[in-house]
Nucleic acid binder design. Structure first.
Length: 470
RNA sequence: GUCCCCAUCGUCUAGCCCGGUCCAGGACACCGGCCUUUCACGCCGGCAACAGGGGUUCAAAUCCCCUUGGGGACGCCA
């Protein structure tokens, strides 16, 4: 079998959105799975709307996702002579002609067709005029009137189009620039692309492209049209459904592994398996298991999966990913061993890195702000004695290990005749300001003796003050 | 409007190609319970779907047709 060569051809008119990322992923995965090649191509023939900033944003997003390319990035804007050459070939072989119909005339034709309920088609005015290149001429492809054009689609099966539905579409604009369908075919041919996996919004372009391949005498690539990604209202995903930019998810604290896992699973399946590492995805991905129906982008499931990937990642490997979020919260991020210890206590309860950083506040800020409810419930006079007893124990405790701390708490329990919960909760509030946190012993061990003692004393002062004011 | 595609729990999906093992399985979310120093994790249990109608067949989620619903494409955009 020939080497599989796939490609991802975004147009640089904005950021990389999740639908595009999924298409890129499918192509990349298929190339990696088969040991083939993955080509990146920037489709910027629309000079008006294309920007370098968008291209850079797309590269950045792909890199974050861990999608690397073997060839490119190619820019169509630097390949105009190639298109020119191929357009000439098509004209020379009698498969295309110059047309001088004005844009206004075409617009009028479309309006008329729409009013009559017909599919708008070019009427072929210039088809047999034998015009030569002129000031305002475009080049049109000579499409067949009869017969059918069939897409043998690896995900959807055979799709049949009546050629009578097609018209003489433009392949070169009056300014000499190529039209999308032409540029795509020429690029895919010259770049050796033999597998085209793309969104199914492209199926109606495909018969035109097939005709172009035939006119050029080139064998067809394998086509696979994957269903769209929809928003929660089942319409095409767009900004009004929330974040659609891949990098927005990075900034919200999602892991690239979770993102690709989620995106690939949306529209592809491997039995009942939900969690995949990057390596598993490469190993198990196949075109056959791509589904036929459109899927709704579900943030909640993405978030759950992100939680799973956070849990599965070795804490040490999460340190560098978490640091930007810690920094954003304004914490001191110099001690990576400390951060790793913090992650060990937070990873099972965080759905995103952003959430983890927010929940890590008490590890980095010595001024504890008590949540009102928490203070009301646990920082009261009855807590004074156990806290006092605990301070005594902690002051004399040799090492702050989990085991030693547990013993210290047991002693306090005996002295005060209280259950652990009665002691642990006030301490938790004293240390974190909240009633929910990682295990009390691990927190104490990480925060360290001095800071723990000072926070407990502050809590006692707080209780005294409240008593006076009461 | 024309053409094309799609149709299993609220959502992602397995099963469909090669009908019986499916009074339909998993996951997310949700609701109970267990564990427990809190929260979470984990574990156990629950809720919840074959769009509708016709065929074919001893038998249909699975095959065929129609209807309905949804999506996409109809540019000198990509």
């Amino acid at each position: 079998m020939d080497t599989i060569i796939t490609r991802f051809p975004p147009s640089p008119t904005g950021y990389l959105h999740v639908g595009g990322a999924r298409t890129a992923l499918f192509n990349w995965l298929y190339a990696r799975h088969t040991g083939g090649k993955f080509v990146l191509r920037i489709e910027d023939t629309d000079v008006q709307r294309s920007t370098q900033a968008s291209a850079d944003a797309i590269f950045e997003a792909l890199e974050w996702l861990g999608i690397d390319w073997d060839d490119g990035p190619y820019f169509q804007s630097r390949r105009f002579p190639v298109y020119e050459e191929y357009i000439q070939k098509i004209i020379d072989s009698g498969n295309a002609y110059y047309c001088s119909c004005s844009a206004e005339k075409l617009e009028a034709m479309r309006a008329e067709a729409a009013a009559a309920g017909r599919n708008p088609k070019y009427d072929g005015t210039c088809r047999d005029k034998g015009l030569s290149k002129g000031e305002n001429t475009v080049v049109r492809f000579k499409a067949p009137f009869m017969g059918t054009t069939v897409i043998e689609d690896v995900v959807k099966g055979s799709i049949v189009f009546q050629n009578s539905e097609l018209d003489d579409f433009i392949i070169q604009r009056s300014d000499g620039l190529p039209i999308y369908n032409l540029a795509v075919v020429v690029d895919d041919i010259t770049m050796g692309i033999n597998t085209v996996i793309r969104g199914d919004d492209h199926v109606s372009n495909t018969p035109k492209q097939i005709l172009l391949y035939k006119a050029l005498g080139h064998p067809l690539p394998t086509f696979g049209h994957v269903p769209m990604v929809l928003g929660n209202d089942r319409t095409r995903l767009s900004k009004r459904h929330g974040a659609t930019s891949v990098t927005a998810y990075r900034d919200m604290g999602y892991l690239p592994e979770a993102m690709i896992n989620y995106l690939v699973r949306l529209g592809w399946s491997y039995g009942d398996q939900e969690f995949f590492t990057r390596e598993e995805l490469i190993e198990k991905f196949s075109l056959e298991n791509i589904g036929k129906s459109a899927g709704v982008f579900d943030m909640e499931k993405l978030q759950a999966l992100n939680g799973d990937h956070i849990k599965a990642a070795p804490p040490a490997k999460l340190v560098s990913s978490l640091i930007p979020f810690l920094k954003a919260e304004g914490y001191d991020i110099r001690d990576t061993a400390y951060i790793e210890a913090v992650i060990k206590t937070l990873n099972i309860r965080s759905k995103t890195l952003k959430e983890m950083a927010a929940d890590a506040r008490f590890y980095f800020e010595d001024t504890v702000v008590y949540e009102e409810e928490a203070a009301k419930k646990f920082l009261k006079a009855a807590s004074l004695d156990p806290l006092k007893a605990l301070i005594k124990e902690l002051e004399s405790l040799g090492e702050f290990s989990e085991k030693a701390l547990e013993d210290a708490f047991k002693k306090v329990m005996e002295q005060t005749n209280l259950k652990l919960g009665k002691i642990a909760q006030p301490v938790r509030v004293a240390l974190t300001g909240k009633t929910a946190s990682p295990g009390i012993f691990e927190i104490i061990e990480i925060i360290g003796r001095e800071r723990v003692l000072s926070r407990i004393r502050k809590a006692m002062e707080f209780i005294e003050r409240r008593k006076e004011n009461a």
